[in-house]
């Protein structure tokens, strides 16, 4: 259908600087003050994401990667530094940014279709127009026939599919995903990864994807940013050498396994040996990051 073709065409890497620096994170820092004490959650994070790029942020649980994502979505304020998307500082949520949370966050009294249409209702968009699009998204994620079910009648994976549809409803330029599949079992998680790959096969979006699964990061992303424990910072920026369209078969490639092993080794060595700043240069394969360009 035509409506599904509205996704942005992936720019070639040689595109304009504006496109290469679609998202700019510069010296982002987050300090939580609780009582007299203040806790530094993020310390001086900088990176860029190009238009159409799928970037995974990989790091241990509780390292502040979710905070980083929420700051990119305008849901958390930066304590210092600046985050811009398409050249404009991100200070509040935007319609052009879709967000998926760890919890599918469906409204229990709404049907699948109504949940997918929820953003249209909130943003006073013409519901009839978006109804068709919602239906197509639902069909795309394999939920055809479940339009009128309530969330409690769905499995965990199905609920996250609904959440994906909702995040994609008004065709955002940029999709933020905060460990969306971490609560799912391994098999369902693979299914969901396949759904995401399928979506990216159809129309690529710029995406920032937080995960603590190495396999998931390597499978889905064009680049992986590796973060340390608190106060978190980006210690590695790794380019994933698999092209697109991509499917689950890449997991069978020896290179995939090697990449995963290497990343795991990096995490296990911990921060002491990875005391690097983004921009210090490639560890495995050079990624693109702001400091150099």
């Amino acid at each position: 259908m035509d409506t599904l073709a509205m996704g942005t065409i992936l720019d070639p890497p040689e595109a304009t600087a504006a496109a290469r620096q679609f998202i700019q994170v510069r010296g982002a820092r987050k300090v939580y003050a609780s009582g007299d004490k203040s806790v530094e959650a993020l310390s001086d994070v900088s990176f860029d994401v190009a238009k159409g790029e799928f970037v995974a942020i990989l790091g241990p649980s509780g390292c502040g990667k979710s905070t980083l994502l929420m700051m990119c979505g305008g849901l958390e304020a930066v304590t210092a530094g600046v985050i811009t998307i398409a050249g404009t500082p991100m200070t509040a949520p935007r319609a052009s940014v879709g967000i998926m949370f760890q919890d599918p966050t469906l409204l229990p009294w709404k049907t699948v279709l109504q949940n997918v249409l929820f953003p249209a209702r909130i943003q006073h968009l013409p519901e009839m127009e978006y109804r068709d699009r919602a239906q197509q998204l639902i069909d795309m994620v394999g939920l055809h026939g479940f339009e009128n079910k309530r969330p409690h009648e769905l499995s965990g994976g199905m609920r996250q599919r609904v959440a994906i549809c909702r995040a994609l409803l008004n065709d955002p330029d940029f999709l933020l995903m905060d460990e969306p599949f971490s609560a799912l079992d391994a098999i369902t998680r693979d299914e969901m990864n396949e759904v995401l790959l399928d979506i990216w096969r159809r129309y690529a979006k710029t995406a920032l994807f937080v995960t603590h699964s190495i396999r998931e990061a390597v499978l889905l992303a064009d680049r992986v940013l590796m973060m340390t424990r608190r106060p978190a910072t980006v210690v590695a920026d790794i380019r994933i050498p698999f092209g697109r369209p991509r499917d689950m078969s890449v997991t069978e490639a020896p290179e995939f396994t090697r990449l995963c092993t290497q990343l795991r080794g990096m995490i296990e060595r911990g921060t002491g040996q990875l005391d690097r700043r983004p921009g210090d240069g490639p560890i495995l394969q050079p990624g693109r990051h702001g400091g150099e360009e």
Binding site: L75, P93, I99, F101, D103, T105, L107, F118, P119, I122
Partner: peptide, 20 residues
């Protein structure tokens, strides 16, 4: 989580009150 969803969708206080 639902309140965060509302914020991310830029729902007004009135909207998030009645619809969520």
């Amino acid at each position: 989580n639902a309140m965060r969803l509302c914020r991310s969708l830029r729902a007004s206080a009135w909207q998030s009150f009645w619809s969520v």
